[in-house]
Design a protein around this nucleic acid. Structure first.
Lengths: 337, 337
DNA sequence: TTGTACGCGTTATCAG
DNA sequence: CTGATAACGCGTACAA
């Protein structure tokens, strides 16, 4: 291991025969430097392999050029077959890449991990913090915001003190369209497999279901799930048990819908003849399920990109960053309903 | 957004009626501070909500207390159904968590992304860099090491200038045990589905296969794969095409083995009666495949933990960190062979 | 256009 | 055991 001394601005200046200030200007792309000098400096930088010391730079600029995305989940969950995580990460990543900011991905599935994440952010390691997949009334976003750290959430935060800007999708509208579609196709015993009730996405989709059904004068039938495929299987079985004559089911995630498809087949029901199935997400794989899944498309990648863009504006000090942006959802009709 | 001024050491000192130096000592847990003073300082820290400025601290300590794990892959690949990534990330994460270091996960599937990662590391954002899933003769590990940055690789680097310490598993031994087992069960037309040949894991497992077969005087039959399930399906079909009478196949990854299982079933072959199948990984799901998969277990999580431990030693300046650690593999016999 | 000099917030070295 | 004070490496008013 060659522990070579790291060259400093001073060393480059000396080699190029100029002052530290001039080197700093060249390195930071100032235009007020004579071409010949700039060239000499760049050569010295090259020869010495100079790279600015991030700590020193941050100390004076108060910027780190990196931004955290916090996922309050275990690695197990993040790296499951749930395509939500890669989609949002890629959305955020592409936008930050364009802005030349480094994405720092942090998973915190445990209380201890969560504390470390908090300290990391408060210590000034990053210029801002984005949250996704928030559970319950998480105090961390508000806490960081109160400390003056730019914060933005994907999914409306359940707690509103202080209000932090967020982006979300139109859960209610999407669900309403789905249920409406079922009703119009003549279904009348419409069940739902709900998402986790400690998350806004789970809550909002269930509310959308019950509201729409109530308006139509139809009885609700709810089973609990947690967005995973397995929970979809279990819930579908329970539903069938409680109402063998049900003729439709809305699952709050594509994965749960796939689980439902599987459970229905195992129970000898045909889709969509006996039971119509609608999901929520519109992952790629849902085009290829058997039968292809009718589902509510939510623009996860776009949500990630939007979140990153808002964060960039927040960091830039833009005073009128929207407190909330709601992205549209759309019912995609395929064969399952 | 409450952009409150961040309290500094100075502010805390003033409030507690002591010097900056003393506050620093208390904050860093020095034992040479009178109990009453320590208490007063702690109270001031609490009241002001003081958190040390990471940049200032790093500038003098030359430590950031965070360590990067670089995955030269796209987010798409990292978040696929390949359980290798979550396993190694969890291994690394658990060990780092215990040492109170922050893991910075960086994916770099493109050339541009790779450059940013390099700059990030060289700029001193992290105390060390770990690599996993290295492709080809990647110059980055050596480049960073030459700069004096602690580097360690999971998987023997193909380039050796300068040599960076690495940890790997006993590919050859595991494969030999697998092939041996097939031979001893009376198989004689043993094919393989190889992994990507730009990765040590792919290369070493193929070599292990050809070597063992040569020693046994048996003819090799090789199809190319890339560790994914789909490539396993395609390769198995090609193999069946080239030798319809083959009676065994060793796949260089569990995922490819699952693909092979699927392709064999589609081709009307029964496993293990017609064709024996052995994989490499021993992911959880392989216990539940149909039939349960005989496979070579490699300790991925342990590899991650070991890699993190070595990194910690490197950072601590330990002069005799092993240049290489090879973890054992083990043949797990189930129903498929 | 270039150089001088100061400050960013900490830790570490030395006296006291 | 505590308090001055000097680094750490860089950006940037300000002066030249």
């Amino acid at each position: 291991m060659t522990t070579r001394e790291r060259p400093t601005l001073e060393a480059v200046a000396q080699r190029a025969g100029v002052s530290r200030a001039t080197v700093s200007r060249v390195v930071n792309g100032s235009t007020t430097v004579a071409a010949t000098i700039r060239e000499a400096v760049n050569r010295a930088v090259e020869e010495l392999g100079y790279v600015p010391n991030q700590a020193a730079r941050s100390l004076v600029t108060r910027q780190t050029d990196s931004i955290a995305l916090i996922l309050p989940e275990t690695a197990n969950r993040v790296f499951s077959d749930d395509l939500f995580f890669p989609a949002i990460i890629r959305g955020v990543g592409s936008e930050l890449e364009a802005a030349d900011k480094q994405l720092v991905l942090m998973m915190a599935g445990s209380a201890a991990g969560y504390q470390r994440v908090e300290r990391y952010a408060v210590a000034g390691h990053v210029d801002g913090v984005m949250f996704a997949s928030i559970h319950g009334a998480d105090p961390l976003p508000g806490l960081l915001a109160r400390r003056g750290i730019p914060v933005i959430c994907s999914g409306r935060p359940m707690t509103a003190t202080p209000p932090v800007p967020y982006i979300d999708v139109d859960h209610a509208g999407g669900v309403a369209a789905a249920i409406q579609h079922l009703i119009e196709s003549g279904r009348s015993r419409i069940a739902t497999i709900a998402g986790p009730q400690d998350m806004v996405a789970g809550l909002a989709r269930l509310t959308g279901y019950t509201d729409t059904l109530r308006d139509a004068g139809l009885p609700p039938l709810v089973a609990a799930g947690d967005f995973t495929r397995d929970s979809g299987i279990t819930a579908m079985r329970a539903l069938l048990d409680r109402d063998p004559a049900l003729d439709a089911v809305f699952a709050a995630s594509d994965l749960m819908a796939h689980g439902a498809l599987q459970a229905l087949r195992a129970a000898g029901r045909s889709v969509p003849d006996d039971v119509a199935v609608i999901g929520f997400d519109d992952f790629d794989i849902s085009r290829y399920s058997d039968p292809p899944l009718t589902t509510v498309r939510q623009p996860i990648g776009e949500a990630g990109r939007t979140m990153a863009r808002q964060m960039l504006r927040l960091i830039a000090g833009d005073p009128d960053v929207e407190p909330a942006i709601i992205l549209p959802t759309e019912l995609i009709i395929r064969a399952s309903a």
